[in-house]
Amino acid sequence: MEMKLWVLSSFRKHCCLPCASLRHLSIAVKAKRYTKQKSKKKKETQEVLSSHEEKRIRKKLLTETEKKHTFRQLYPWKTKLEFAQHLKQSQTYYQDGLLAVNKPYGIPILGHLTDLETRQNIIQTLSSGVTPEGIPSLQDALPLLKDLYDVPHMEIIKAPERWTSGVTLLGTQPETKAKVQKSLRRSLAAQIPPLTYWAIVLGKTNPETYTGKVGMALEDVKEKGKVPVITLKYTKTAVKEALVKVNCVHHKVLVNNSETMSSLVEVKVQNKRWHFLRVWCAYNYSPILGDMLYGGRVRRVGGNPVLISPHNMTAYSPPKIFPSTLSRLGLSENTQELIPCHLHLYNICLEQYGTKKTSLNITAQPPQHFIWSCFQLGLMAEPIEEDVKEEVEMM
Rank of each mutant, 00 (worst) to 15 (best):
C19P: 00
R119D: 14
S26I: 03
S10K: 11
I308G: 01
K320V: 10
K78S: 13
K80V: 08
E161R: 09
P318C: 08
V7M: 11
P340C: 06
L8M: 12
K55H: 07
F370N: 05
S128D: 14
L377K: 06
K182Q: 14
M1G: 12
E133G: 15
E386N: 11
S258D: 14
T45N: 12
L61V: 09
N256G: 02
K55G: 00
I339V: 06
Q270G: 15
R58H: 09
T92K: 04
L22S: 09
P367V: 08
R273Y: 07
V255D: 00
V227L: 09
V244E: 00
Y234C: 06
N347H: 07
V227G: 04
G303C: 06
K67N: 07
I200N: 01
R162C: 10
A242D: 14
I384A: 13
S258G: 05
T92D: 04
K233P: 00
A141F: 02
H153L: 06
S128Q: 13
I107R: 00
L110S: 11
S309G: 06
R33Q: 10
R33T: 10
Q73K: 15
R297F: 07
F11Q: 08
I308V: 15
L148C: 04
L293Y: 00
V167G: 03
E208A: 15
A217P: 01
A159D: 04
Q376L: 13
K320M: 08
H275R: 07
W6K: 15
K36D: 05
P193K: 02
Y294S: 02
F83D: 01
L170E: 05
K32Q: 11
P310F: 03
D147T: 13
S332T: 15
R33W: 09
L232Q: 12
L326Q: 01
L62W: 02
L87P: 00
G303H: 06
G171A: 13
E64F: 03
G354F: 03
P136S: 11
I156P: 03
G106R: 04
P152C: 10
T65M: 08
T231I: 12
K177V: 10
L360M: 06
Q73N: 15
S51Y: 11
W163G: 00
K245W: 03
K41I: 08
V244Y: 00
L329D: 00
G203N: 06
A159Q: 03
N247V: 04
H24Y: 10
N347I: 05
K245S: 12
V130Q: 13
K41N: 09
E133M: 10
T92A: 15
L243A: 05
R273F: 09
M292E: 10
L144Y: 03
L289Q: 04
P366M: 08
K357Q: 14
H69I: 04
I348P: 01
I27Q: 10
K320L: 11
W6V: 14
F11S: 14
Y285F: 15
H344C: 02
S332W: 02
H112T: 13
G296W: 03
H311E: 09
K36M: 05
T131A: 13
R58C: 06
D140H: 12
A28W: 08
Q73L: 13
E241Y: 07
C374N: 09
S317I: 05
L74V: 05
L338T: 01
V392F: 15
A364V: 14
Y75P: 01
L87M: 10
S309Q: 06
L243G: 05
I200C: 00
R33K: 13
L379K: 05
Y346I: 03
L195E: 02
S262V: 06
L17V: 14
K32W: 12
